[in-house]
């Protein structure tokens, strides 16, 4: 489809900017490798080995080639192949993030519908009040509090505090529950408030009044007249939060729960200046962004007949 073709210059642009920032102006490893007082010959030789002496265009093209072939070489710190690190860690991160993300949005929409339906009523006020509370508490505090409540001997002591020893579905549930609850708690407030605003606005539209005048039941109004019309902002929000959730959400969760996902790998790579891994993660994030944009546009078309893909 033509939409995907327009994604190509976008990917080029994004990778170019991230390349300039992270690789061209990024950390210079020459001195790390050589230690104190290197000779000029040593410096030149190492720079040649690292490819620093090549022109910008050549280095950028090389980066693009790495992206296209998914071959980023070997990690500086562990010596492991970058692609195999990613293959090992990305599924872990997805498994960790996905339940919280899906449930957080689903519950957000459901609570927003309930709140909007009872607008001005005490049910609405309670939901909105709790949402503000959820929004106001820092993610870090929530993680620590949930670890104490669910996983420590002072609390319920039902789940392991840290780690990821997953060999079966029951293991998965054991390890994923507390992080999922924490991420739902944090995202639910934002989601509910946002979705409620969207739904309330849609409820004031003329066509909703028309449906009412033709005898539609309020529940039918909400699910038929309103929900599909509200999908555009809802989809936008969900799609745009995907890249952010995958990167930053998993970063915190993984480091606090000691889970070996891609967020933790990225975090370690930033700390140690492990360029091959950073290059891979940044490039993939850019590509993911562009793809979510494309999927976003396609979904728009699905829910709203007025939008055409051109």
């Amino acid at each position: 489809m033509r939409k995907i073709l327009t994604g190509i210059p976008l990917i080029l642009g994004v990778t170019l900017i991230s390349f300039v920032l992270m690789v061209h102006f990024g950390p210079d490893k020459t001195y790390d490798l050589l230690g104190k007082n290197p000779t000029q010959e040593q410096i030149t030789e190492v720079r040649h080995q690292l490819g620093y002496d090549q022109s910008f265009v050549v280095r950028y093209t090389k980066y693009l080639k790495e992206l296209a072939t998914m071959d980023f070489g070997y990690s500086d710190s562990s010596g492991e192949k970058v692609s195999s690190i990613l293959v090992r860690t990305i599924p872990v991160s997805l498994a960790l993030i996905l339940p919280g993300f899906v449930l957080g949005n689903l519950l957000g929409v459901i609570l927003a519908l309930i709140a909007a339906y009872h607008r001005g009523h005490w049910i609405d006020k309670i939901i909105m009040g709790v949402s503000v509370m959820g929004m106001s508490v820092s993610f870090l505090i929530v993680i620590i509090a949930f670890q104490i409540i669910f996983s420590s001997s002072k609390g319920l002591d039902l789940f392991p505090v840290r780690g990821w020893d997953v060999y079966s579905f029951t293991d998965y549930i054991r390890y994923v529950t507390v992080p999922t609850l924490a991420s739902i708690f944090v995202s639910l407030g934002y989601n509910t408030r946002f979705y409620r605003a969207v739904i309330v606005e849609e409820m004031g539209r003329d066509h909703v009044r028309t449906a009412k005048a033709f005898g539609a039941h309020p529940i039918e109004l909400l699910f038929k007249s309103v929900l599909k019309n509200s999908m555009i902002p809802i989809i936008t929000r969900i799609m745009f939060s995907i890249p952010l959730v995958v990167i930053s959400g998993s970063l915190l969760l993984e480091s606090y729960f000691g889970i070996p996902g891609v967020g933790k790998v990225t975090y370690d790579a930033i700390i140690s200046g492990d360029q091959p891994i950073l290059k891979a993660v940044i490039g993939l994030t850019a590509i993911m962004f562009v793809f979510t944009l494309i999927i976003n546009d396609i979904l728009y078309k699905v829910v709203d007949p007025r939008i055409s893909l051109k």
């Binding site: 539209r205 003329d206 066509h207 009044r209 028309t210 449906a211 038929k224 007249s225 599909k228 019309n229 829910v303 709203d304 007949p305 007025r306």
Partner: peptide, 10 residues
């Protein structure tokens, strides 16, 4: 308002 009185997505 015939422009807005019908539901645009059905």
């Amino acid at each position: 308002e015939p422009m807005t009185a019908l539901n645009p997505v059905f």
